[in-house]
Amino acid sequence: MIKKFNLLKLNAYILLIPFVILFLVCTFLVYYLLEDKDPSAPPSALLNKKIPNFYVEDLINAEKTINQNILKDKKVLINFFASWCSPCKVEHPLFLKIKEKNPNLIILGFNHKDKKNEALLFLKDLGNPYSLIGIDKDGKVAMDFGVYGLPETFVVNENGIIIFKHTGPITDKLYEQEIKKLLFN
């Protein structure tokens, strides 16, 4: 008698398994959909990691070099750009606006796989929001930063930890809602 009862109960449990799977699958899918994750922009791998070391030539002043030490104890905005990259032009005015409002903020630009004269022309035409610009001619720095699609923007905190990363042009909304908080808190 008892044995039969157990058997029945086991069957009922087995019947519940598809339900459980259905609920789990739907929960994850709904969560993922509502989070509005972008399938083409994966979360950055370098988030919460220390920034990589770099040693590059300065675009404006050819005799100068730039390395990671200049970022010490400061919050810094880092942006990878190039003159051939059209989305970079889209976000450029926003950087000018940020620089204008916060003259003390260090914005470090990396000129990615670009020709020097074209890059200079680009800045002359559109204005230069950057405090410093490093030349990343062969894309070596970009690789260390895990950059794959221009433009990409990083926020680094006082301890040299990357606390924000965005692939693609940054927008007003993104700046107001996320980047601002991270930079000035």
Binding site: L22, C26, L29, V30, Y32, L33, L34, P39
Partner: peptide
């Protein structure tokens, strides 16, 4: 729903995705 990166994903928005997911959930459930 466009939640997966794929060779032939349709251009989509999430309301469609949610609706199909709802149909999936109701019919299967």
């Amino acid at each position: 729903s466009g939640i997966l990166m794929s060779v032939h994903a349709f251009a989509t928005d999430s309301s469609r995705g949610l609706f199909i997911l709802m149909l999936f959930f109701i019919i299967t459930g």
